[in-house]
Design a protein around this nucleic acid. Structure first.
Lengths: 210, 210, 210, 210
DNA sequence: AATGAATGAGTTTTCATTCAT
DNA sequence: AATGAATGAAAACTCATTCAT
């Protein structure tokens, strides 16, 4: 029975130089993944693109799986950071505006690195127990739910757990379609507006007449 | 520049025996893909699972990519058949009922082989020119749009092209979440009902009070 | 249309160790080719004979074709070096002596590794664009022609281009027969003498009475 | 210890139909060899080109080696037939004319199927003990020698065994170069004339002034 | 710490040959 | 006799990973 490959980075980079090397490697991984696809993204090729030796790569990441997992985490964190920043005012806004702000924030988050996002979602295999994403997904659904809680008097759905589940997948998939599948005939702005409309109507909110 | 692997099945089976072999191979491919994941699904393992020699596999599928593409097509056709069968009455129904019928049909289609559907969507790399699915997607959007056309007097959206785009991704992603990500706390029936609600409200239809 | 296999060595060895490995591999290739013939000379067998892993072989030669091409080049260079060394004095010699020296030089070149020469010529497939040998052939014909030019007053042929073509194939094939097809009843010395006679008479030179 | 593949055709075709099938197969083998090269000439492809099933091919030829050997023999016989026909008058002609006739006959023989001749010589592996060709080669050298015997009073070489060896390789290689390597700047007629010159001078014959 | 040469299990794929129909 | 589906040993080649320097 083969030992499953270790998933945590081999060592926490203590020094600035190590930190920089780790970043360089993750950056190269992202670039190679986007440029060549997962099938062609060998560790040797990634090391070459990063300008470090294959030995150094394995100094920081004990397996390819660990490398990819770290990249996935980094990407998720960057998206989350963008989401939080752009969605900052949602808590204090009206329900209608909160929707607008948050949909826009999700769009902004998807724009952090759309191509990497696509590859990570479509090509890169996820390990046995789907790690990483779940945490952030749960977090976002919790946030959504507490926001729904605040506005619960003015919205139609009563099962807020169910509503948050629906809203999460709804917005995620439509934004994904809007940002990733650039082949659409509609601009992102139009799609963003329509996503707001879907959410408003689902929640029973009166959209502003524009 | 590497030659892209040949994607078309190598030869049409003429005798009944060959037809059976092709089916056995595709069936085994699906099973192995689900059981072991794409990364471990070697052609030798698939042939073994099918109970045929590796040579027979390559007699009918000139490359692994061709094999997987054929399976993808077969799966899409099976889903489409289910969709058409279960969604049969939608054209004659009222708008409200049509939504209910169609959402149910999409759920039924996703239940044809949910695990295979997941692997095919998440792990199996798609060839360069993503054919097959696109055709079916375009087809379904066109069907959706003509149905919207019929009911255009009773629904809110006026840009039916945009609306069909939104509805396609909306329903697809929510059904996917409902059927595939079995980790949800809600039953499929409840989720199906809620998806109908989302659609009804987006279209501005009065759902039946239940 | 299949991609032609890559023909150039994959990387220039930087460390002394790699240089040695490349040599070991080429040496083993020659030995296996002679011992087993091209049909049985698999890359795995060659790697084993070289005492390196199959991976190392492919580190330096991206395909079997590249390996064989590199060996062909190395062999041609070794033959050429021998030819130049033994044929050194031909330019300053009389026409009669020049012939004697050069025929002897060609014989010496063929003796560098007669068995490898035979396999390379008879069994090993040449790549589509037959490079390498052609260059050397053209070079040798040019050298021959300029030597004929020097002695043009004392020889019969007037079309020196034609004469060099004839001489090249003439000497090559007879030396080949003399050295390679060892099955002949005559010693190499006798055959070498007779080749000189053929050339002298063709050129209209008076051979020394021996 | 693997049994070497059988080299003789599996059965002598007794009936006209069998004879025709054998011919069709050999013809297809030649065509495929020339068109695709030995590396791509699989038995299945040959059977397909011949319009017979692979099973039928093995009915007549027990192995690929046997097939190729039979083709080699057939080709040699066709060349020999041409050689004998065109060279018919050599025995009664003068020495000078005999050379002319025979060189022309060798050229004609090489023109029977130059492309097949090239592939057979350069690409197709010969079995362990070089069969087939040797017989014909010995035969032709014997014929050459007896012709030299007739004219021994008028030629320079005294060791006729040696002379026949030299002449065989000489003419063979130069004709080969003339017919096969079509890339030469000279026409076949000019080269043929020059080959005669080489032979005449080697034999010490006075060529006709033309 | 870094380098990059070396490893070898495992993958895709071919093709001469067999044999049930 | 003929067919063509089926076979499987063996070939070329990849790539995550190790380890001597």
């Amino acid at each position: 029975m083969p030992t499953p490959p270790p998933l945590k980075p081999r060592k926490a980079p203590r020094q600035a130089r190590s930190k920089a090397t780790v970043d360089v490697i993750l950056e190269a991984t992202a670039r190679v993944l986007v440029r060549d696809g997962y099938a062609l993204a060998s560790t040797n090729r990634i090391a070459e693109a990063a300008g470090v030796s294959i030995g150094s790569l394995y100094q920081y990441f004990p397996s390819k799986q660990a490398l990819v997992t770290a990249l996935r985490r980094r990407h998720a964190e960057q998206m989350l950071a963008m989401l939080l920043e752009v969605g900052r005012g949602a808590a204090e806004a009206s329900a209608v505006d909160a929707v607008k702000i948050l949909v826009h924030a999700v769009v902004a988050a998807h724009r952090v690195d759309p191509q990497l996002h696509r590859v990570l979602g479509e090509e890169v295999p996820r390990p046995y127990a789907t790690e990483g994403r779940t945490d952030i997904e749960a977090d976002m659904r919790a946030q959504t739910q507490s926001l729904l809680q605040v506005h619960r008097a003015h919205i139609l759905p009563t099962d807020l757990d169910l509503a948050s589940l629906v809203l999460f997948h709804l917005v995620e998939s439509l934004v994904h379609a809007a940002v990733i599948d650039g082949k659409s005939a509609f601009t992102t702005a139009i799609l963003e507006q329509e996503i707001c409309t879907v959410v408003w109507r689902y929640l029973g909110l009166q959209p502003p007449q524009s």
